[in-house]
Simulated assay, not measured.
Amino acid sequence: MSIAPISARVPDLGPAGLPEAVAGVAWRRPTVEDAPAMHVAMNRAARVDHPEFQIPLQEVVEDFEVSHVDPAHDLVVGERDGEVVVVGSSILPPGQVDVRRAYLGGSVVPEARREGIGAALLAWQERRAAEQLRAHGDDALPAQLHVWAGADTSVVPFLTGAGYAIARYFTDLHRDLSQPIEPLDDGDLTIVPFTPDLVEAGRIARNDAFRDHWGSQPTTPERWQRFAARPVVRADLSAVAVDGDRIVGFSLAEHDPDDAEVAGYTSVYVALVGVVRDHRGLGIAPRVLTRTLEAARDAGLERAVLDVDSESPTGAVGLYERLGFTTAKQSVVLERAW
Results as ranks from 00 to 15, higher is better:
Phe64Glu: 01
Ala123Trp: 13
Arg246Met: 11
Asp34Ile: 01
His68Lys: 12
Val76Tyr: 01
Ala228Gln: 14
Gly315Asn: 06
Pro180Cys: 12
Arg134Ser: 05
Ala102Val: 14
Leu272Ser: 04
Ala45Met: 12
Leu272Thr: 04
Val199Gly: 08
Gly283Asp: 10
Glu20Lys: 13
Gly24Asp: 08
Ala143His: 02
Arg287Gly: 10
Val85Asn: 03
Gly82Met: 05
Ala151Met: 09
Pro110Leu: 12
Gly324Leu: 03
Ala35Asn: 02
Ser67Ala: 15
Gly106Asn: 05
Val61Ile: 13
Arg211Ile: 09
Trp338Gly: 05
Val199Ile: 09
Gly187Gln: 03
Ser310Gly: 10
Pro286His: 15
Thr326Ala: 08
Trp148Gly: 09
Gly95Met: 13
His174Asn: 06
Tyr269Trp: 14
Gln132Lys: 10
Phe170Thr: 07
Ala130Gly: 10
Gly187Pro: 00
Thr195Cys: 11
Leu173Lys: 03
Val10Trp: 03
Thr31Tyr: 12
Glu33Met: 06
Met38Ser: 06
Val48Asp: 14
Thr195Ala: 13
Gly244Gln: 14
Gly283Gln: 03
Glu321Leu: 10
His73Gly: 13
Leu133Asn: 05
Gly215Ile: 08
Thr190Tyr: 06
Val61Cys: 05
Pro11Ser: 06
Ala209Leu: 04
Thr327Ile: 10
Arg280Phe: 10
Pro257Gly: 07
Ala253Met: 04
Pro313Ala: 09
Tyr320Cys: 01
Pro142Lys: 01
